[in-house]
Nucleic acid binder design. Sequence first.
DNA 1: CCGCTACAGTCTGTTCATTGAACCTGCATC
DNA 2: GATGCAGGTTCAATGAACAGACTGTAGCGG
Lengths: 180, 180
Amino acid sequence: MALGTDYEQQDCSLARALEVVGERWSLLIVRDAFYGVQRFNDFLVHLGIPRAVLTSRLNALVAAGVLRKEPYQQAPLRHGYLLTAVGLELWTPVYALARWGGRHAAPGGPKRLFSHAPCGTDLDLAGACPHCGGPAVPPGEVMMRPGPGASPDVHPDAVSRALARPHRLLTPVGTAAEAR
Amino acid sequence: MALGTDYEQQDCSLARALEVVGERWSLLIVRDAFYGVQRFNDFLVHLGIPRAVLTSRLNALVAAGVLRKEPYQQAPLRHGYLLTAVGLELWTPVYALARWGGRHAAPGGPKRLFSHAPCGTDLDLAGACPHCGGPAVPPGEVMMRPGPGASPDVHPDAVSRALARPHRLLTPVGTAAEAR
DNA sequence: CCGCTACAGTCTGTTCATTGAACCTGCATC
DNA sequence: GATGCAGGTTCAATGAACAGACTGTAGCGG
């Protein structure tokens, strides 16, 4: 977790989770991975995070089994960072926290809105689709679009611009998308 | 948030939420508040957190509207820290993160299990009751009991002992409970 | 009155994570 | 050969977290 850097003595599942994703920047990296960010440089410019910290966090998330390194070219060897099955299950807490923040900690309202891609219905608080029913929608079926609190002008980098357009989660953005 | 100590440049509801509850210890304090911990000293012994940090976090959570100070005696003035309506809405993300931690980051399995107090059914991943249906169960109706990963012997303080017994969320534990 | 304990802090010095900038490597292109 | 890019590593300075001592108010026992 941010700083300490662990909660060894805490006999609690929440503390275990925070040891993995509770450090500063970690959850924002995971969020960006859901948004489709895959490459070191894209995380770097989109988050504005120091390089050394990004290196450390990505390695920690890979070691924890949340992300995996996937080579996308040889010579020189380069790899993207993709969510594993374990990482994909973080969608529920990430979505719940973002919804809470959008309602109680964001002055202009939610920055982004989420809907069920097949039917277009906005997700409820638990991340499920009120129209289709069933449990929480898997992130691959979630469509993201800017909300009323979005600021249009900040951060004119390619990743931010791509994320300002309606976009299905987990589809590549940034350099990885342009290279296709 | 942990260290930095904010994410000003992030145009994201998740970043706003993390500025409130993303600092080290903050979410564990909120979790303890759900468990029924109310007093400074009870947080202190149960979390094993430095006093100065606890003071700082409690004040920040009060300023953010997550907790409120409620006097329980005069002379000397003493107050407990209780969740506000905004704080109670953190139950969904806290529960989702704890469930994720219990499945993927806890070696012995979940430390605690949660059920719907009126009917006794265990909650599903989204925090809803499969028996009663409907959306997520409000924390006041949630019953907590030790799970298979619980360690029985650590931390023989009064708060930990109280939390090792089946217990309804939001009912006072520790000194506040003994004083009734 | 005196000493003891409890609670809720504040203060102090040390440790350690974060930050930002600079540097390094391997390769491709001009 | 020089330049640029992607993905790092290294470094000094900053500032938060830590452990422990200290403060202040009050109740209790003798």
